[in-house]
């Protein structure tokens, strides 16, 4: 026997889980992880796992985590792109699990992209 509160808890937990099931809305953030051979070899699987865990934990239901193939900058893998509605896409490089968590906290939740992790920054510095 489940109480009304328990049923509501299941609803909320499951809502977060089925959130990824739907074609992305125009108003959604999309985080895309490069998952070609190069990305996976560089540890993109861990990045992806960290991103999905963060999104679930923080109840970010306007965020879709997705994956894509090689975008051609293999030496910078794992590469993560963040698409925010109405803004230029931001490409992050060398995103390990720790960076992934920082990106979610700073960029997605607070609207501050982390310049030091971006592709343009990395290219300029090298």
């Amino acid at each position: 026997m489940k109480t009304l509160e328990e049923l509501q808890a299941i609803r909320e937990r499951m809502k977060a889980k089925v959130n990824n099931r739907g074609v992305a809305d125009a108003s959604d953030f999309r985080i895309v992880v490069g998952m070609a051979t190069c990305g996976i070899a560089a540890g993109a699987r861990n990045t992806l796992a960290a991103l999905t865990a963060e999104v679930e934990e923080k109840h970010l239901d306007n965020v879709i985590v997705s994956q894509t193939g090689c975008i051609g900058i293999c030496r910078f893998e794992p590469v993560v792109e963040v698409f925010e509605p109405g803004k230029e896409k931001v490409t992050y490089v060398h995103v390990d699990a720790e960076r992934a968590r920082q990106i979610v906290a700073s960029h997605i939740m607070n609207g501050n992209p982390i310049n030091e992790y971006t592709y343009s920054y990395a290219v300029k510095e090298n």
């Binding site: 889980k17 089925v18 990824n20 099931r21 796992a49 991103l51 999905t52 679930e56 997705s66």
Partner: peptide, 9 residues
């Protein structure tokens, strides 16, 4: 954890 992809058959 949140699954990153859902396959619906």
């Amino acid at each position: 954890m949140l699954e990153r992809a859902h396959i619906l058959v």
